[in-house]
């Protein structure tokens, strides 16, 4: 089955320092039948979102025409001015397909006020907004943003981790919220999500290199859902996100 992964990264694995390069990513993609990926950088997660964006942009440019790598521009709520400039710099490129919001150095909670400032500037771009939610509190911030910016598309990365049901309910209330399934592996997570939302708003993401590329693939493959629903999660929803750029 074909797969589009909307949540993976390149760069050094934080703390350990081992490099997970574009070549490593492509190897994992080949092994796991991933046809396309939306990438960001571990540098952006931890210390330097601007350096991470440079790496992502250089990578998608390098592999243009050779591999289906697309980029997400990371913006950081601690640095709104620089974040706006990063979006202006990169979102003109058709292979930079999304904006990813991180809060401070990723351990900080999302704050509505700081997210709002950046999202408000992002309105001029059509790119969907990817935001990792660590818990229910982060999901609530995304709900507030989605309710205010109704024409924008939000995708909750990690589904609120342990609070994934909260993320599902947030998406049920706000039709401009979709979910990316990495995070907690609960046996009833996919079933519950599809019963509540249908299969069109759940995206496949691997969380590479923090998680082995085969893990979430097996999670979907083993779910008690039909092949059409699996195809939506693995591929069709991601293809729509990429505006058929494959």
């Amino acid at each position: 089955m074909r797969i589009i992964d909307i949540n993976c990264r390149i760069g050094a694995i934080p703390v350990l320092g081992n490099q997970f390069t574009a070549e490593n990513l492509l190897g994992s993609m080949q092994k796991n039948e991933v046809k396309a990926a939306v990438i960001s950088s571990t540098i952006s997660d931890t210390v330097d979102f601007m350096a991470g964006n440079r790496l992502v942009y250089q990578t998608v440019e390098k592999y243009a025409g050779k591999a289906n790598l697309f980029g997400a521009v990371t913006v950081n709520t601690a640095f709104p001015d620089e974040s706006v400039e990063e979006m202006r710099k990169y979102l003109f490129n058709e292979r930079m397909v999304a904006v990813r919001v991180v809060a401070d150095n990723r351990k900080s909670p999302l704050l509505h006020s700081t997210c709002r400032a950046i999202i408000n500037s992002q309105r001029r771009y059509a790119a969907p907004v990817l935001i990792h939610a660590k818990n229910a509190a982060d999901v609530e911030v995304i709900e507030l943003l989605a309710a205010e910016f109704k024409t924008m598309r939000f995708i909750i990365l990690g589904m609120g981790e342990d609070d994934w049901k909260h993320a599902v309910l947030a998406a049920e209330t706000n039709t401009n919220i979709s979910l990316e399934l990495s995070g907690r592996i609960s046996s009833d997570k996919i079933d519950y999500t599809l019963k509540t939302l249908g299969s069109h708003r759940l995206f496949y993401g691997s969380s590479l290199p923090y998680v082995d590329g085969a893990l979430f693939k097996a999670f979907v493959e083993n779910a008690n859902i039909d092949d059409g629903e699996k195809a939506d999660i693995f591929f069709n929803n991601g293809k729509r996100l990429l505006d058929n750029k494959l």
Binding site: A12, I13, P14, I43, V47, N105
Partner: peptide, 10 residues
């Protein structure tokens, strides 16, 4: 600060 937040080697 890369040494604090990202990788001490880097």
């Amino acid at each position: 600060s890369y040494g604090i937040y990202y990788s001490y080697r880097d």
